[in-house]
Amino acid sequence: MSGRHAPHWLSRNTVPLTMQRVIIALAPVTLCTLLWFGVGVISNLLLLVLFCAALEAAALTLRQRDVRAGLADCSAIVTALLLGLTLPPALPWWLLLVAAVFAIALAKHVYGGLGQNPFNPAMVGYLAVLIAFPDDVARWPQPAFAGMDQVDAVSAATPLDSIKMQLNQMRTMAEITAQPAFGLLAGRGWEWINLAALGGGLWLLRKQVISWHVPGSMLLTLAAAYFLLFAFTPATQPSPVIGLLSGGTMLAAFFIATDPVSGAASDTGKIIFGIGVALFCFGMRTWGAYPDGIAFAVLLMNTAVPLIDRWTAPRIYGHRERPR
């Protein structure tokens, strides 16, 4: 009799709108990265967007899905941008292609496409090339604001890297942060990139694209962990401020760990997810072999998601116990 089924009103929120907002929120951090690392960032981003979109279209065609709808949801673009912002600038095209293949073809479409991937595609792509080509991927050039005051054009360690190396050489934090590679708050350039990501992230929070649970718990845990060690041994530990404004911290907190598909379902689950990412990341930064453990941390927590979802299912109205 009646074609329409309640509810007759639907919110205006859609997946493409969500993704477009994420892209807009990435603008400040993209701009900042561009300012400090030059045009190599642009070539990375352009190539990755191209590769990811092409791979997405190819995968959808192979899987006999609607290619236009699949591209229109913009999720491949978001993956491309996140990859581009976590990889050092001006990488060779073939390396970017490998990253895109791992992210889109393997991590996403092999598992069934949008919504089905248990792992964060961008992080899978990043880790694949980091492990395969560590010399290209682990090293970043010295940041130089708008190409001026070129300190050292050759690839060097990131601030996190150099802190770790120099601490091993028995330098103190005070000595290290006095070096020109450090700015007001943290690594020169990096501090601005992180602040820009924070700004974009806060806008996403305000637009309710993401909830506070993951970034809140992750950043608080990270700050607390840094603070604990720092309070006892301030001379040989980076401060919480450095910890929060280095590497991909803010990008991960607001844009990567908040990926809904590979994240936990319930609010409590999201808090646990954030805490887990922070702890793994802190552990790897402090004691691990890689300077920035964020990608590992996110993927590790991705594997824990089914478990977290079972533990944290909310108690249903009228029931005494949680569903199992």
């Binding site: 009103w9 997946v15 709808a69 919504g115 809904p260 598909v261 379902a265 319930s266 108690r315 109205y317």
Partner: peptide, 30 residues
Amino acid sequence: DELPATAAELPCIRCGDCATACPAHLMPQL
């Protein structure tokens, strides 16, 4: 314009918005 155009259904992206909104505390996505 109060009625939504019949939008194409996309896959669930596990955003959890439905679980947050559910007054019975269910997890509709699951």
